[in-house]
Simulated assay, not measured.
Amino acid sequence: MRDTIDRANDLAQQEIDNILVKRQTVFVGESAINCLECGDPIPEKRRQLLQGCKLCVDCQQIKERLTK
């Protein structure tokens, strides 16, 4: 039977994992003109606001869902 400390450790590890995933989505460098996954154009506004983005909104959302 799991005790309170085990559950607390699991929650702490889950929080650390979530932080690491969020840190992976930080964009640096020059943005791609077309999405590296699907090839669709990345809107100019997105490229300006998120310098270094490489994925369109749809592909970025899929990536984030898969890494949760």
Rank of each mutant, 00 (worst) to 15 (best):
R46Q: 12
L50C: 10
Q13E: 12
E44L: 14
D17S: 10
A32L: 05
E64M: 12
A12F: 04
E44Q: 13
C56A: 07
I62G: 00
K68C: 02
C53H: 00
N18V: 09
C35T: 02
D3L: 03
T4Q: 08
C53S: 05
K63A: 15
A32P: 02
P43Y: 02
N34Q: 07
D58E: 13
L66M: 13
C56W: 03
C59T: 09
K45T: 10
R2Y: 04
I62W: 01
Q48A: 02
E44A: 15
D10I: 12
G39T: 07
E44N: 08
M1C: 06
N9M: 12
R65H: 08
R2L: 11
I5M: 08
L20K: 15
C53M: 03
C59S: 10
E30R: 09
I33S: 11
P43Q: 01
L66I: 05
L20D: 12
T25R: 08
N9T: 06
L49R: 14
R23M: 13
I16H: 12
E15P: 00
C56T: 06
V26Y: 07
Q60P: 00
Q61R: 14
E15C: 05
Q48F: 01
Q14M: 08
K22N: 15
R23F: 04
I62P: 00
K54M: 09
R65G: 04
C53A: 05
S31R: 02
G52W: 01
D58Q: 11
G29W: 04
D3N: 15
I19A: 15
I19L: 15
R23S: 10
R7N: 03
C56Y: 04
I42E: 03
P41D: 08
N34P: 00
I42S: 01
R47W: 01
K45W: 13
V28G: 03
K45V: 14
L66S: 13
V21R: 07
N18C: 10
P41K: 08
P43F: 02
L36A: 06
I16V: 15
V21C: 04
L50E: 04
C38K: 13
L11P: 00
G52T: 05
Q60A: 11
N9L: 14
S31F: 07
D3Y: 09
D58N: 13
L36I: 07
E15G: 10
D17F: 08
R7I: 03
K68M: 07
L55N: 01
A32C: 10
T67G: 00
T4K: 09
N18H: 06
L50H: 03
C53I: 15
T4L: 13
N18S: 14
G39W: 05
